[in-house]
């Protein structure tokens, strides 16, 4: 019986909710029980945004994540707010191009990825979020990386099929990032 609880947090517009949705769809395709819960309200108008994803072998009880196994943060306030929510031994993924704070916890694994800079350098500046997700997939071993195209097929709308290749590129960049 395994349950993974993940929090994604950052500014509205960084693709925080989409990142969570991508991970949840990975769970759906892998026939796991999943839930995705966004913050809603003023966040949607450009403030801070976060979402909680649960992936489990057993039915998901409460969809609210108060103790996260993994945390992905894309701004300082998010790190401040959620650092303490990570369980000992958990993993924190930080976009170090945007977050200048350091994780103060010593009982968690921390990965600093300059995702927003990498995305800009590669001409995919809106996909820093997916670079972080790529790294999460690598370090968590949650899902088979070869499934990503099947997942992208599900969540990228018919109108934006051209974006699939860019998402694939971003995920690969993160997956292969050693830093």
């Amino acid at each position: 019986m395994k349950t993974s609880q993940i929090i994604f947090a950052g500014f509205g517009g960084q693709g925080i909710l989409f990142s969570g949705k991508f991970l949840a769809y990975n769970g759906l395709i892998a026939e796991k029980n999943v839930s995705w819960l966004p913050s809603y309200g003023p966040e949607m108008r450009g403030g801070t945004a976060n979402c909680s994803v649960i992936i489990s072998d057993t039915p998901v009880g409460s969809p609210i994540v108060s103790e996260a196994d993994m945390l992905v943060v894309m701004n300082n306030p998010s790190l401040e707010k959620f650092e303490s929510a990570v369980v000992p031994g958990g993993k924190i993924f930080v976009d170090s191009a945007l977050v200048d704070m350091k994780v103060t916890r010593t009982d968690v694994d921390v990965y600093y990825i300059p995702a927003t800079k990498m995305a800009g350098d590669e001409g995919i500046s809106t996909l820093a979020n997916m670079i972080l997700v790529g790294k999460l997939l690598k370090e968590s071993g949650l899902f088979d990386f070869s499934n990503i195209d099947a997942v992208l097929d599900k969540i990228v709308s018919a109108k934006h099929q051209d974006l699939k290749a860019f998402n694939h590129k971003a995920l690969s960049l993160g997956y292969n990032y050693e830093g």
Binding site: W36, Y40, V60
Partner: peptide
């Protein structure tokens, strides 16, 4: 309630 309305599940 707001949680059920906003959350996604399979």
């Amino acid at each position: 309630d707001g949680t059920l309305g906003q959350m996604m599940e399979p």
